[in-house]
Design a binder for these strands. Structure first.
Lengths: 168, 168
DNA sequence: TATTAATATTTAACATGTTATGTATTGCGG
DNA sequence: CCGCAATACATAACATGTTAAATATTAATA
């Protein structure tokens, strides 16, 4: 009873639901992400940047003058977190806010010259780590993995979940 | 100009390194994980459990009497976080600590009867969400994705990184 | 125009991740 | 037995994730 319906191909004799636990998709994604980030964290730490701060700067380098909401989506950071992160980055003089003309609610975020210089300094090293990972895992396999991850994300975010359930 | 990048579906001609940004492996893994977790979070929320608390209870259901360090590794949670989580779970009467005989430093963590009952109540629903995901994405593709994620993790954690760099 | 709903952002409260440090216990060398 | 490194946890400090509520501004409507 309560047999995990996943029924993966190669299975041993294990206490029934243990395997279902260690074979958790969120865990697998978490571990993979951790393994990847471990390659980048030391580099960012050298420049006193967190992973998320780096994502914000990186996004602004490409897409400057974004509104906060757009920046949040582009960097995969929630608005509350972004608010705090921008406060920190502004204190360091790496970004700046400016109110939008037409809409006084909106704020446009820009990266400063100093911010750009920092990204320019770190960028090449980051690319190098990326190249190492690509080489270690294989460029083709990596492309394949990208495709599968995007497919999974699309498959789960597109629809499938009725907008809202019911009971609190 | 500075067109809002709200969900650009097909990659067009974009400023060179934008793609490198949106094609970040950590981001891809993050998005996929988010998409998956979105299916489980409402369920856990109904029972006032966070994702990490659930991982701990789930691990203890299978492997009871683990030491804190072992539990941390099994559930992919850092020791500092686990310490806090166990405090919360104990207050709710779902887990219990007991000192180990031979080694007074070590602590063995056990799940209580109430904890087991809670897991038993949530488990089937969780399995159902899992089955939905499996069906939506395809069982075979999912197995393939597992294999690739594990390969990537192994490939990056095995070696490749000299133990420690140099400068401060 | 006054009211109200919707939008963009911020703040608050709590839980967790990350890094460094503290504390108790064990094990070892002298 | 004593001093000391190593081990197993716990705590602290800061940054972020998550959820809900607050604030300010705009849009919609009566």
């Amino acid at each position: 009873m309560t047999a995990p319906p996943t029924t993966p191909p190669s299975t041993q004799a294990k206490p029934d639901d243990l395997r279902a636990f260690s074979r958790s998709l969120p865990m697998a994604l978490l571990k993979a992400r951790e393994a990847v980030m471990a390659r980048f964290r030391p580099l960012l730490r050298e420049h006193d940047l967190t992973e998320q701060q780096w994502r914000v700067l990186r996004a602004l380098t490409t897409l400057d003058g974004l509104r906060a909401g757009e920046l949040a989506r582009a960097s995969c950071i929630s608005m509350p977190s972004l608010s705090r992160i921008l406060k920190t980055l502004e204190k360091r003089g790496l970004t700046a806010r400016t109110a939008e003309d037409g809409d006084l609610r909106a704020v446009q975020i820009a990266i400063t010259g100093e911010g750009r210089r920092l990204v320019a300094r770190i960028g090449p090293h980051s690319e190098q780590r990326y190249a190492e990972i690509t080489q270690a895992f294989g460029a083709r396999r990596l492309e394949d993995l990208y495709a599968q991850l995007e497919a999974l994300t699309a498959c789960l975010t597109a629809d499938g979940e009725p907008p809202l359930a019911d009971e609190d």
